[in-house]
Amino acid sequence: MAINILIVDDSGVMRAMILKTLRMAQVPLGDIHEAENGQKGFDLLDQQWVDLVIVDINMPVMNGEEMLDRMKENLEMKDIPVIVISTEGSKARIERLEHKGAVFIHKPFSAETVRDTINDILGFGDNDESQT
């Protein structure tokens, strides 16, 4: 099963890095959408079918936590899995995001961490043929 992913980060270089990492990790990719802030990401979710959102926290216009909050208030978006990839180092802030249902990955990240996290939250097993 190919997964449609939305990558939200204000850095174009970081969005490219995340996409490169997804390819290195052999994640079965469907359509990849990109947005440079939470508002554009949220608008895109309204128009496209997305299986997984990968979002940064510190962004202009709308940050990642606000986007997550708005997703949770929306019946069609509230169950979409969210991975936060950020430099955030505060335990309290990370726990707050986790309580909102996000899975946290710290920057800088490895391809293995991204792959394992996606496998965990989307329920892919080690023997899942879709990943080969």
């Binding site: 850095s11 430099t87 955030e88 180092g89 505060s90 802030r93 920057k107």
Partner: peptide
């Protein structure tokens, strides 16, 4: 951004914001 984000908790721990 990444160096600074990792530097501050390395200096002061993860209990502070």
């Amino acid at each position: 951004n990444i160096i600074c984000g990792n530097l501050l908790p390395a200096i002061a721990g993860d209990e502070v914001v």
